[in-house]
Nucleic acid binder design. Sequence first.
DNA 1: CTGAAAGCGCTAACAT
DNA 2: ATGTTAGCGCTTTCAG
Lengths: 344, 344
Amino acid sequence: MSAPRAAGEAVDNPRRPTLTQVAELAGVSLKTASRALNDEPNVAEATGARVRQAADLLGYRLNGIARELRRGATSALVGLVSGDLANPFYSAVASGIERELRQHGLQLVTANTDEDAELERALVEAFLERRVRALLVVPSGDRHEYLAIEGNRGVPFVFLDRPPDGLEADAVLIDNAGGARAAGEHLLSHGHRRIALVADLARMAPQRGRLDGFVQAMDAAGNDQWRPYLRTDVHDVHRAEETVRELLTRDPPPTALFTTNNRLTTGALRALRGHPAAPALIGFDDFDLADVIGTTVVAHDPVAMGREAARLAHRRISGFGGPAQTVIIPTEVVARGSGERAPA
Amino acid sequence: MSAPRAAGEAVDNPRRPTLTQVAELAGVSLKTASRALNDEPNVAEATGARVRQAADLLGYRLNGIARELRRGATSALVGLVSGDLANPFYSAVASGIERELRQHGLQLVTANTDEDAELERALVEAFLERRVRALLVVPSGDRHEYLAIEGNRGVPFVFLDRPPDGLEADAVLIDNAGGARAAGEHLLSHGHRRIALVADLARMAPQRGRLDGFVQAMDAAGNDQWRPYLRTDVHDVHRAEETVRELLTRDPPPTALFTTNNRLTTGALRALRGHPAAPALIGFDDFDLADVIGTTVVAHDPVAMGREAARLAHRRISGFGGPAQTVIIPTEVVARGSGERAPA
DNA sequence: CTGAAAGCGCTAACAT
DNA sequence: ATGTTAGCGCTTTCAG
């Protein structure tokens, strides 16, 4: 005898049994079967057992779609639209969201935009058609007005990492400026003046915040020797590596580096590998093994970020109608060696 | 004038407009409105325009739930039930799945089990009630018979990383034994005999495969000096770190280490940090910055794994009824230094 | 080209 | 304790 198969289903797919069929087999009415299977009161012990037996026999499974339609066309799904789940930052956020939602019986549905604003919009539309209860977005596009109508019609939005532009909505943001300022001050306090800043796309709000914070620290210290070493719009690991290599050939070279996200830090680490007199380095975003490599970072808690976003969403779902809230996730400089190297 | 708000939706949620209302406003029948909005043929230019205008005015959005119910109670959703999305291995797999599904207009829904077999079962049930088109599972529990009925009723299953037990179903697995054998041979060829093996829960199939492959390599070389250094059921980073520290205090100590997944490798790297005469190290699973740290690994492609799984699922959804297939993802030893250190 | 009627599978409201 | 009727919002016949 062979094992039951899950593979060849397409061959014999005689449509799933419905509640009506269960009721017929059990010799009761549709509604009684419904009551029995939903553990509602007012079902005789024996009747309930008969219904459950019939359901088992038929391999019946409740049709959640029909139920949702009848109950008001709103699912237990919460959508997350983000740039790239393969980035550990986003996946940590997603896992924080998922865990918190589950506490409330909600389910996370994810979609990647690959940082494409048009795809983002299409995915948002798709989620709304699916009647998600709330929508969490790490926006790539810059204008979000198109979401406003939705918000007014019962689908709460929560923005993550980047603030909403063009509408009021809940958001969970990182203290970008504060973290970057702290990084700048940290390097200054270790004697650095020629500090290179390697940043991602400057049009993104978090990157702007980090740039601003860094500049504040420099201005406050009356240092402007960093300016020749500013490099923005470096968007991938490879470009980051090249950029850092180029910076090191300058004369004089920078004595320190500040990279404004985990991808750029990875690129910098590659460029610095085996370098005899590596400049000091601080990276924004903590990462696995930073302790092993000894990389000083501006750390924050992405799982907490997801959790807070899920909480905001849940509050709205539960009927909270107050003004939009913004939660700021704090940052902290974690010294591990690379950021404490003195200027050469 | 203030920005449109997305926050206070709960206050005024007058139920979403329906197609009937759009039709009324446009002065056409329900069906005509449906045709116009779905770009079906046989709609006069002017009529279509009027309908679309009415829809915009009302802020109408199609109710995907009603559509799905009518079209056969099956969604465009594909479920993924996995252990822990925060683990970069799983999130890479998820991103491979997501990308491939999107090619076919399918949407990924994810849920984490935290490696809990009961939660896994509950989540699978929940997905089935939601009428997912296919279900991808990285199973934590060991018996999967309970899925068999579903498989016969039109919901294809694909198992990832761990083979199905108790039913026939498509699967995508890593060449665990082959990779581990290659790692063993690699260390042997560099002169190692006292090789420590640090493994995760031995009841998990991938771990067993890796153990077996390693043992095969040792047996083939007639080496059994590794046996005193076998440590299994090491399940988290912290325990891995402790275990490696303990191993290093043995007399004589092992001259090489093989860690059988990314978590254990991380723990080993922490234990080895700053060690004057670190043993050679090979880790199963590649990871970010392994190149920077110089860690030799048994690499494989988790994104490809996700992609293959999504392809199998899509084939089944499209009606393929052949026997269950298993795709094996190949592995490769990537030498980066740590695995090539000679015995002390 | 347009419309009327039926019904997907379920639950809510109202009998009995 | 059980049954009957209606209808969620849409698409699918089948007629005009």
